[in-house]
Write a protein that binds this DNA or RNA. Structure first.
Lengths: 134, 134
DNA sequence: GTCAAAGTTTACGTTAACGTAAAGGTAAGC
DNA sequence: GCTTACCTTTACGTTAACGTAAACTTTGAC
């Protein structure tokens, strides 16, 4: 056996995750600083579980949707109720629904922008054809 | 007639637009600094046409989708071919398609996140029901 | 043992997108 | 003429999300 960090238990090194998701290790450590990830350690070295990997995935998805890291952390926390107090649950429910509404708005924005771009594309294609059949 | 800036020709003052879209006048001027808007002037005062208003709308839509102002400017410029050179048109076409791909990715991200949030919402609702029927 | 690759911490630098004064011009209403 | 409301420019401040560099340790391969 020659290279890979972990062969049996499925865990990941920081550079493995960095490669897989095409981010820098600096970024991953930064997410940890901000409290979004809390990998285990073997000595000094960080060891990432599949759960950590999933969280990173969620973070990056959030980024693509224009969320801040704080917002992504909130969303990640939404996935496991945790505090079972009724007030907390209600607050959480409200947040979830607010998020869904925002996503709904984004969906609409994308639809409209897609249509606009499609029109632009059509016009550009027409213009190109005009040049060629000239 | 008592207040509004313009009664006949439909133009807008900076604060009118600021109110309508719920942004600050500072932000609107900033977009101008960055070359995204170029309103007419009456003396020093900025006067916005419906076209300017539309551009502002595009900018804000872009923001909601996580675009930078530079990217939004690019997109706005995509809407009118302008330079009719063939190379330019091809480049433009490529950009448009790249944008569409990105939006496609975002659509997928939203779908997935929506589903995840729906599951979370269901779980939270169940938890709340459990508390009440306890 | 040593060399390169990958890991670590600490810390200063950078960019985007405005916020927030400061200091002043202009026009309407009283 | 004075206030009030809205406009202007100039300019320094701020936050988020890392980049980049320095200085050091650990580890597998030869």
């Amino acid at each position: 056996m020659n290279n890979n960090s972990d062969n049996k238990n499925n865990t990941f090194s920081i550079s493995e995750l960095a490669k897989e998701f095409d981010v820098t290790t600096r970024a991953i450590r930064f997410y940890e600083d901000k409290g979004l990830l809390t990998p285990a350690r073997r000595g000094q070295t960080r060891i990432y579980s599949p759960a950590d990997r999933t969280k990173l995935k969620l973070i990056l998805r959030g980024k693509r949707l224009g969320l801040t890291l704080d917002e992504s952390r909130d969303i990640i926390n939404m996935y496991n109720p945790g505090g079972s107090n009724e007030d907390q649950l209600s607050t959480l429910l409200a947040k979830i629904r607010e998020r869904k509404n925002y996503l709904q708005q984004q969906l609409h924005d994308i639809e409209v922008m897609m249509l606009d771009l499609q029109e632009s594309e059509d016009r550009v294609i027409d213009a190109l054809n005009d040049l060629k059949t000239q």
